[in-house]
Design a binder for these strands. Structure first.
Length: 262
DNA sequence: TCAGTTGTTTATAT
DNA sequence: AATATAAACAACTG
């Protein structure tokens, strides 16, 4: 699930239900998701502390309290849910933050990422590592400035969190498809019109995905057809092709997204 | 049994 | 120095 739009949805959830409320209890159902603290340390740091305004940085969610910050990363299968007090536990619920009004559940099937504890902004920065500017507030000039001059394929560059933070496999395929740019294009080869299409596609896809809290699988979008057995392009009707880029499945339309100089 | 999954890191090669 | 590839992490599903 989680790319920028999903994590932004989790941030909204946390802002609505958690901000300014007190954590009554921390329940660690699976200690394996705690990356730099024991369950005792996590509970000791957060119990009876007040949550402040949450923040998203790329795919990271920051939940600051009056005693340090909880950092959450959702990997490929994580999510954050708000449930009624004492709601039944799901088998993949790994951590529960119990508040007076309800419970926040960190749920994750695969446990590829997890939860960290940071005492100060420097510790937060050390855990998150270098991140490019967030994709959600990126100007046209900044997008081009971050990418131009790099060698390599455009999909790899867009997926690199140090270049731009927040874009993942699904988003990048959708953006490139809407911009009609082949995922293997080289940045120096893009003309002004293509840069423009890339920027506006990025804006449109992100705006609508953030609103939905996911990349919406609309029939008119690549995301709406990519999981079909033999997907066809919603724009031209031609067959959708698949290739491997950076170890990820990449879907594109060879007719709408041609690779020049074959 | 095997390939595949919306993420990231590490090792190795180019 | 950058870039490319594969594997590993983990827990499933078809």
């Amino acid at each position: 699930m989680p790319e920028l739009p999903d994590v932004e949805g989790f941030r909204r959830l946390l802002a609505e239900h958690g901000a300014s409320r007190r954590i009554e209890q921390v329940e660690v159902h699976d200690p394996a998701v705690l990356r730099n603290a024991t369950p005792e340390e996590m509970a000791g740091a957060l119990r009876r502390r007040r949550l402040q305004q949450p923040e998203r940085r790329g795919k990271w969610l920051l939940a600051p309290t009056d005693n340090g910050t909880l950092l959450l990363h959702f990997g490929m299968s994580g999510e954050l849910l708000w449930v009624e007090p004492g709601a039944e536990r799901h088998r993949h619920d790994r951590v529960t933050l119990r508040l007076e009004e309800g419970e926040l559940r960190y749920r994750d099937q695969r446990k590829l990422q997890g939860l960290w504890l940071a005492g100060d902004p420097e510790a937060v920065a050390a855990i998150i590592g270098p991140l490019g500017p967030d994709a959600l507030d990126l100007s046209s000039a900044e997008l081009r400035g971050r990418l131009a001059g790099r060698r390599g394929r455009i999909k790899a560059a867009l997926m690199d969190q140090e270049v731009i933070a927040g874009l993942g496999n699904l988003l990048v395929d959708e953006i490139l498809w809407q911009a009609r740019i082949h995922p293997h294009r080289q940045m120096p080869d893009l003309d002004d019109q293509e840069w423009d299409r890339l920027y506006h596609s990025q804006r449109k896809v992100l705006r609508e995905a953030v609103r939905a809290g996911r990349v919406p699988p609309r029939p008119s979008w690549l995301t709406g057809v990519r999981d079909q057995d033999t997907p066809t392009c919603p724009r031209c009707g031609g067959p959708i092709d698949r290739l491997r880029e950076g170890g990820r499945s990449t879907y594109f339309c060879p007719r709408c997204q041609p690779l020049p100089r074959a």
